[in-house]
């Protein structure tokens, strides 16, 4: 197996590359990004490149890539500007799929990391979203629109390339010690926001399960669309109770206006899709991926509890700053120098 991982500097791509390195059947892992990797890697080859089509198709052909793991999608709109979000999500995916679908391309498997954000949050939603359901209201935010567009590209790609196994994973909100989302940031604050009078059913997935789900799709044949989320769901108030935080209510009307000062004062940035999530919640049916052979390590409440544990210990255990820094010469030495004795 020869794997290409996009956005290697991101947390997800780094974790997936780390996990794939451990697999004996994976011969080569190639990572692409414009920035240095943030996690220590053993044998992954890093190529500093932007996501333009010509470079990607050359890498795919030169390294005889048969599996593409596209984890580099921005699902948190507070991270980047709208323009960069469009560049990374829409243009990046377009180029990648074009490279993977080029004539004579060796690619046989494509895995895309999408988000349950594509379902939205609305009062008319079903209690449990199944994969074939579509959202009940038109997308209002840039991140949702771009994800829907990306999924459309992937659907076309799957239709045009029936010989390629295409897996689309939609992840629920992630919680974990190392990942920052608008929700996890909110839960790290001394007090946690809620919308007055609303206590929606919410659902989480643990970061380890996200990595596991991506690796499962990359190494097993699981074509199709799958929701990935921990078992069960709980009200937002219970989530706050598990992390032992007091809640402060936001007004139920004109909520967008009310959070604007919080954003300007850099207290808390709650984008519109997160505000809707705090109002109506979102729960997906995770049974299809379980039937496809994936085993979760955390339930939804378990993910919250693990996050709470990390939160409790953060003050005393572990480094405040990442210990690893990528250095090209050092990495090259260990990978390619004849002086290094290799057992394999």
């Amino acid at each position: 197996m020869r794997v290409l991982v996009t956005g290697l500097s991101t947390y997800w791509a780094g974790r997936v590359a780390q996990a794939l390195e451990q697999r004996p059947e994976v011969e080569v892992v190639v990572g692409v990004d414009t920035r240095d990797p943030s996690l220590p890697l053993e044998r992954t080859e890093f190529v500093r490149a932007d996501s333009s089509y010509s470079i990607l198709s050359r890498i795919v052909c030169a390294a005889r890539i048969d599996t593409v793991v596209h984890s580099h999608l921005v699902v948190d709109s507070t991270q980047t500007s709208g323009r960069r979000l469009h560049e990374i999500n829409v243009i990046g995916t377009m180029n990648l799929l074009a490279a993977a679908g080029a004539a004579g391309s060796p690619v046989r498997r494509v895995v895309l990391k999408s988000s349950a954000l594509v379902y939205g949050s609305n009062s008319r939603d079903p209690a449990f979203f199944r994969e074939e359901m579509t959202r009940t209201s038109p997308p209002r935010t840039a991140v949702e629109r771009s994800l829907l567009e990306v999924e459309g590209f992937l659907r076309d790609f799957a239709e045009d390339n029936p010989h390629v196994t295409v897996t689309l994973l939609r992840f629920a909100n992630v919680l974990g010690d190392d990942i920052e989302t608008p929700i996890s940031k909110a839960l790290r604050r001394p007090v946690v926001p809620e919308i007055l009078g609303f206590d929606p059913r919410v659902q989480f997935v643990h970061e380890d399960d996200v990595v596991g789900a991506l690796v499962h799709a990359a190494t097993d044949d699981v074509p199709g669309i799958y929701n990935v989320a921990g078992d069960g769901c709980q009200p937002w108030s219970e989530v706050c109770a598990i992390v032992r935080k007091r809640r402060v209510p936001l007004p139920p009307v004109l909520t967008d206006l009310a959070v604007e000062p919080l954003r300007l004062l850099r207290v808390l940035d709650l984008p519109p899709e997160t505000l809707l999530f705090l109002r109506y919640g979102r729960v997906v049916d995770n049974s299809r991926y379980k039937r496809a052979g994936f085993v979760y390590r955390y339930t939804s409440a378990g993910a919250v509890e693990s996050f709470a544990q990390g939160l409790r210990l953060a003050g005393t255990i572990g480094d405040k700053h990442p210990a690893y820094r990528y250095q090209r010469e050092v990495e090259d030495f260990f990978r390619h120098s004849p002086a290094v004795v290799r057992d394999r």
Binding site: E132, T134, P162, P223, G224, R288, R291
Partner: peptide, 15 residues
């Protein structure tokens, strides 16, 4: 619009 047009996709209902 059904969104499960992938070849070989698992599309069974949870029975």
């Amino acid at each position: 619009m059904p969104a499960t047009g992938f070849p070989g996709a698992v599309t069974d209902r949870p029975d």
